[in-house]
Structure formats: structure tokens, C-alpha cells
Design a protein around this nucleic acid. Structure first.
Length: 202
DNA sequence: CTCTCGATGCGCT
DNA sequence: GCGCATCGAGAGA
């Protein structure tokens, strides 16, 4: 199956974020295919974005964000959760798209087992939930989505602009004006988004 | 439905 | 030490 190449990620982060909606996140685990359609993302762009992990410069933790577009940036937070991002823009410029929700497609029973839930809506409707369902953790930090045998992205049918909702990013209230940037993108009618709240369409 | 709060590891000041 | 790009349970309306 075709996968997204580096040129897809080597573009403005807001463009990549919007175009990732509708694509399929694929994870091969013990020979089994786990996959879901991306339905919610957020953009984090550069050191001037106070909500971005790179806001205070390069550190060992965020260094993958400075790497090649198409790398996977996975971080650990709240003592128990992982979140997954796809690195965007040119090497040396720290930016990425956070995966906030996918709609389960393949390997659903396996994902239910990993999550300990049997509701489709509870499987992957949040950044840490989808990582748990698809076995994404720090072992995959820095993985190259354009070449990895374990994880990649497959193109989907393009989503018309009018079907994409935009709004402020979740969980970044204490970052001054950056908290207001409308850099969250989601499909408002999908039951698997983390919050169905509809702000506006673009 | 909404809101609050505890869990729990670690990167960074 | 502090604070975190979260989640789920429990309480109350």
C-alpha cells in the first residue's frame, strides 16, 4: 500500500495538519495490522509558539522535532501517557502535528484488548488513548514514517475544506496568546474525536 | 450531562 | 521541586 512520503511532511505545518485528516495511521504489531483514519490533529510550530515543546529551545526531549520531516516524535507525560506527533517542515525548524484522534479501522479487537474497553468511541478518541490502542511509546520516538516497517501513514480521500472544523488547541491554556491560535483541526461529525465541540468551519 | 481531582514519571528550572 | 499537548472515576445537577 502507498504511504505518504517525505515531501508531504516538508510543507507548512498547518497545511500538513489539514491534509492528514482522512489519512490512515497504520501500525504493524506482531504481524497484525492496526489502523485508523485520522480525524483530529493539532499543529505546533516553532520556538515562537509558546505551546510548542520547542518554545524554550532544543533539549534532548524535543530534539526529534528539529529533525527530518516525516519523523515520529513520541513523548511521555503525566507519568503514564504517551502522545504521538509527525514532524513537519525543513530539518532544523522545530514543528510537528499532534495526533489527537483516529477512527478505528483495522485490528479493532486487538485495540480493544490493549485499551481494556469494547466501545469504538473509547478506543482512540484522544492522544494518549490512540497511543495505548496502537502500542505507540518512546521506543518509536524518532522512527521514520517514510521508511519504517512498523508505522506509516497512507493517503485517504481528501476532505473538503468546509468539512474541517478549527479551533484553539486543547490543554494549552497557560501559554498566553498561543492558547488562542486556531491550530486544532478535526472532523466535527466523527464520533471518535476527543471533543465533539464545534467551533467553526473553514 | 458537567465538573473536579488523583494518578504517576520525568524533563527542566 | 514544579508542572505537564491526559484519562477515568466519582460526585452533583
Amino acid at each position: 500500500m502507498k504511504r505518504l512520503e517525505r515531501a508531504f511532511f516538508d510543507r507548512p505545518t498547518l497545511t500538513v495538519a489539514r491534509e492528514l485528516l482522512g489519512c490512515a495511521l497504520v501500525r504493524m504489531l506482531e504481524g497484525q495490522r492496526l489502523a485508523g483514519t485520522i480525524v483530529e490533529v493539532e499543529a505546533y510550530i516553532g520556538e515562537s509558539d509558546r505551546a510548542c515543546h520547542a518554545a524554550r529551545g532544543r533539549t534532548p526531549r524535543n530534539s526529534v522535532m528539529y529533525g527530518l520531516p516525516g519523523l515520529l516524535y513520541v513523548y511521555f507525560t503525566y507519568g503514564m501517557h504517551h502522545c504521538a506527533n509527525m514532524v513537519t517542515e525543513r530539518e532544523g525548524f522545530p514543528a510537528a502535528v499532534l495526533l489527537r484522534a483516529v477512527h478505528p479501522a483495522d485490528g479493532i479487537s486487538h485495540m480493544m484488548q490493549r485499551r481494556g474497553r469494547d466501545s469504538l468511541q473509547e478506543l482512540t478518541s484522544g492522544p494518549a488513548k490512540l497511543c495505548q490502542a496502537m502500542a505507540i511509546d518512546r521506543a518509536l520516538n524518532g522512527e521514520d514514517l517514510t521508511t519504517s516497517p512498523c508505522i506509516w501513514v497512507e493517503p485517504g480521500n481528501p476532505i473538503p475544506e468546509g468539512q474541517i472544523a478549527t479551533g484553539p488547541r486543547i490543554g494549552v491554556a497557560r501559554t498566553g496568546e498561543a492558547a488562542l491560535y486556531p491550530w486544532r483541526f478535526w472532523l466535527p461529525d466523527d464520533p471518535c474525536v476527543s471533543r465533539p465541540r464545534r467551533i467553526k468551519s473553514t
